[in-house]
Design a protein around this nucleic acid. Structure first.
Length: 596
RNA sequence: GCGCCCGUAGCUCAGCUGGAUAGAGCGCUGCCCUCCGGAGGCAGAGGUCAGGGGUUCGAAUCCCUUCGGGCGCGCCA
C-alpha cells in the first residue's frame, strides 16, 4: 500500500486546497487505470468535478465524474462509478470510497486529516478564513449614498449592512476594497431642504409662515433652523408674507419659485450659508448613524466637488466633442440609445441646470480614473432603470462597461403591528436607522439584514426585530461565542492550568467532533464563495450552522469534567470554534461578546 | 403596454450557479440538566418548489408561456 511520506496536512493556509488537489489526483489516477483497461476512451479533457459533500453521510468529498462520463463509456453511471471505486488508488488520505445515489462517488478522508485544524486556526487567529484570491485587486464599493436631506431610515439600513459586509468579505478574500459614500450635496432636493430650513428659521424669527406641504417636514429641519437662528440671529429675516404670496398652484412649481425668491432675498452668500449648514449638519448625522451601525467608510465623496472642480463640465465637453450629445428643445441629450438604453437622456436642461445624470457621468468616470480595477455600486431596486444610461456613458467616454457592476438591493416592506408602514422622507413619517439601533441594538439589526440576500424582497417586522427575544438568530450565534468564553472563565476560576499547544487532537473521535472540524474546515471556502458571488449572507448562514454544531456538541459532551488529555483536546477544539465565530461575525459587522 | 427583481412548509427565509430523500428559524407536539450559561439540545408533524410546456442521464435551479406580487419607464432625484 503506497503511502505518502512527507505529506503535511495543513502546512499553510492552503492546506485544504492542497488536500483537495491530492484527492483530485487520486481520481485522475483511477480514470487513467480505466483508460488503460479500455473501459474508457482516452480523452483530452476530462473535467474533474469535486465538491464538498453536502451531507455528513456523504463523506467529505463527492464527485459526479461517473455520471458525466457514463455516456462516453457506454455504461450506466452507477456501474462506471463502481469501476472507478475499484480502481481507486490506495491512499493514506482517502480511506474509503463508495457509490451512492444515481452514481456519485463519495470519498471519506482519514480522521487525522482534520485533526490539526485547531492548531492551524489558533496559529492564524483572525487571519483564518482570509485568502489571497482577490490578488490585491483594487475594488470600490459605493453604497447608501442617500441624499443628505434627512436622517437615514431603516430602508437605508439594508444597503448599509449589505455594502459594509460585502466590503469586509472582499477584503477577507484578498481584495483591496474601499468603501465610499457619494454625498449628493448639490441639486434641487438640497435646494428644497435649504428652503425648508430657512422657512422654519423665519418662523423662529417671529414671521408667520404657511409651510409648503411639499417641503421637508421633519423635526430635524427645526433643529437646523434653530442652529441658524442661534448662530446668526436675525441676519436672514425677511417678510414672509411677501415671500409666500402669489405662488403657482402646482406644489413643485411653487417650490421652485420659492427657491429662486430665497436666492434673491438672501443673496448668494446667504443662500449658500443656509444650504451648507443644512448639508453639513445632515452629513454629520448620517455619518454618526452609520458609525453607530458599525459601518465605516474610507472616503466621503462630494457631488458639489465634482461641479466645483469642473469635472462635470469636462465630462459634458468631452461627450460633445465625441458627438455623443445633441441639442433638442433647448436641452442637451446624451445618445444613450446608441449603447443599449431605451432612449436618450437629458444631461443639460433647457433652464441651464444639469441633471443628476450629468454629475453621475463625471462621478463614475472619476471613480475609474482613480485606478480601481473594479467599481461596485449598490443601489436601491428603484434605480435599476438607471443602470443602462450610466454604463452607456462609460462606453462613450472610452471606458469598459464591465468595470462597473451595479448590485440592486430590493426594498424591505416594513410591518408594525401587522400593518404595512409607509415611508416618506418628505413627510417626515419614517422609522430612522438610529431608532432601530437604539431599540434593537446594532448587532441584531446588522444580523437581521445579513440573513437576507439582497435581491430577495424582504418583510421587515419591526415588532419582531425590536422584541430582543430569542427569535432573533444573532443571539443564538453570539451565545455560542459567549458560552465558549464562559467555559474558559470557569477553567480559570477552578484554577485549572492548560496549555492548548499540548493538545492531542487524535482524541477527537466523536461524530460531533468530526462534524465540528468538518464545519471549521469549510469556513475559508465560505468566505471565498461569499466574495465571488457578492453574497455576505452566506457567512450569516454558515454562522448559524457552526453555532448549532457547537450547541449540540456542548449538550452532548463535557469539556471541563473530561479526563485531562481529552479535556485539553476538546478545549482546543472549542477554542478554534470561538475564533471562527469571531472571525465570521466580524465580517458582518457584528460583535462577538464574551458574556451576555 | 415595455423592462428589471421575485414567487420554495402556516409565517420569515436558505438551497453552494444542473445533482442524491428540497433545508433552517419562528410557530405547533413530545422529550432532555445530581455536569461547563436552558438565549441551549433531541425528536415529530408540516411541501404539487405559483401553474403548464421544453432542454437531458438528472430541473426549485436553464429556456418558453400563463398567473400573481414589487419596482422602474420625466428637461425628478
Amino acid at each position: 500500500m503506497p503511502v505518502h511520506p512527507g505529506r503535511h496536512i495543513f502546512p499553510t493556509a492552503a492546506g485544504f486546497l492542497f488536500m483537495r488537489n491530492e484527492v483530485c489526483q487520486l481520481l485522475r489516477d483511477a480514470l487513467a487505470s480505466l483508460i488503460r483497461q479500455g473501459v474508457l476512451p482516452a480523452s483530452a479533457d476530462i473535467p474533474i468535478q469535486l465538491e464538498r459533500a453536502r451531507k455528513a453521510g456523504y463523506g467529505d468529498y463527492a464527485s459526479n465524474l461517473a455520471m458525466v462520463l457514463a455516456k462516453r463509456a457506454g455504461l450506466k453511471p452507477r456501474d462506471l462509478a463502481e469501476q472507478l471505486c475499484a480502481n481507486f488508488p490506495a491512499s493514506s488520505l482517502v480511506v474509503r470510497s463508495e457509490v451512492a445515489g444515481p452514481g456519485f462517488i463519495n470519498l471519506f478522508l482519514a480522521a487525522d486529516a482534520y485533526q490539526q485544524l485547531p492548531v492551524q486556526i489558533r496559529t492564524q487567529g483572525e487571519a483564518y478564513g482570509t485568502s489571497s484570491n482577490g490578488a490585491g485587486q483594487r475594488v470600490m464599493v459605493e453604497f447608501v449614498s442617500a441624499n443628505p436631506t434627512g436622517p437615514l431610515h431603516v430602508g437605508h439600513g439594508r444597503g448599509a449592512a449589505y455594502g459594509d459586509a460585502l466590503a469586509r468579505v472582499l477584503r477577507a478574500a484578498g481584495y483591496d476594497a474601499l468603501s465610499e459614500y457619494y454625498i449628493n450635496d448639490a441639486g434641487r432636493q438640497m435646494d428644497i431642504l435649504a428652503l425648508s430650513v430657512w422657512l422654519r428659521y423665519l418662523e423662529l424669527s417671529g414671521e408667520t409662515v404657511s409651510f409648503p406641504p411639499a417641503a421637508y417636514q421633519g423635526d430635524y429641519v427645526f433643529d437646523i433652523a434653530a442652529t441658524l437662528h442661534r448662530e446668526d440671529s436675525e441676519k436672514y429675516r425677511s417678510d414672509a408674507t411677501a415671500l409666500l404670496s402669489s405662488l403657482p398652484d402646482d406644489d413643485d412649481q411653487a417650490l421652485d419659485t420659492l427657491i429662486s425668491r430665497a436666492r434673491s432675498v438672501l443673496g448668494d452668500p446667504g443662500f449658500v450659508r443656509v444650504h451648507t449648514l443644512a448639508s453639513e449638519t445632515l452629513v454629520a448625522d448620517i455619518r454618526a448613524d452609520l458609525t453607530s451601525f458599525g459601518v465605516e467608510y474610507q472616503t466621503w465623496y462630494s457631488e458639489r466637488s465634482l461641479i466645483d472642480s469642473g469635472a462635470v463640465q469636462r465630462a459634458i465637453d468631452d461627450l460633445k466633442e465625441g458627438d455623443f450629445l445633441y441639442q433638442d428643445g433647448d436641452a442637451w441629450w446624451f445618445r444613450s440609445s446608441n449603447f443599449g438604453d431605451e432612449k436618450d437622456r437629458v444631461v443639460l436642461r433647457a433652464n441651464g441646470n444639469h441633471t443628476y445624470f450629468a454629475t453621475d457621468i463625471a462621478y463614475h468616470r472619476d471613480k475609474v480614473a482613480r485606478g480601481f480595477d473594479h467599481v461596485i455600486n449598490i443601489w436601491g431596486a428603484d434605480h435599476h432603470g438607471y443602470i443602462k444610461r450610466v454604463k452607456a456613458s462609460l462606453s462613450a467616454l472610452g471606458i469598459d462597461q464591465a468595470s462597473l457592476t451595479v448590485l440592486l438591493v430590493q426594498f424591505a416592506i416594513l410591518y408594525r403591528g401587522g400593518e404595512k408602514v409607509s415611508m416618506s422622507t418628505r413627510s417626515g413619517d419614517f422609522v430612522t436607522l438610529r431608532e432601530l439601533c437604539e431599540d434593537v441594538g446594532r448587532d441584531a439589526a446588522r444580523f437581521f439584514y445579513a440573513l437576507r440576500k439582497p435581491d430577495q424582497h424582504m418583510d421587515f417586522d419591526l415588532d419582531l426585530a425590536k422584541s430582543q427575544s430569542s427569535d432573533n438568530p444573532v443571539y443564538y450565534v453570539q451565545y455560542a461565542h459567549a458560552r465558549i468564553c464562559s467555559v474558559f472563565r470557569q477553567l480559570d476560576e477552578k484554577g485549572i492550568q492548560i496549555n492548548l499547544a499540548e493538545a492531542n487532537h487524535g482524541l477527537l473521535i466523536e461524530p460531533r467532533e468530526s462534524d465540528l472540524l468538518h464545519k471549521l474546515s469549510r469556513y475559508p471556502e465560505i468566505v471565498e464563495s461569499a466574495a465571488r458571488a457578492y453574497e455576505p449572507h452566506q457567512v450569516a448562514y454558515y454562522l448559524r450552522e457552526l453555532a448549532n454544531d457547537f450547541h449540540t456538541y456542548y449538550n452532548a459532551h463535557p469539556f471541563i469534567a473530561a479526563e485531562p488529555d481529552l479535556r485539553l483536546a476538546r478545549l482546543s477544539l472549542i477554542d478554534a470554534v470561538r475564533q471562527v465565530l469571531a472571525n465570521a461575525l466580524a465580517l458582518l459587522g457584528v460583535t462577538a461578546p464574551e458574556r451576555m
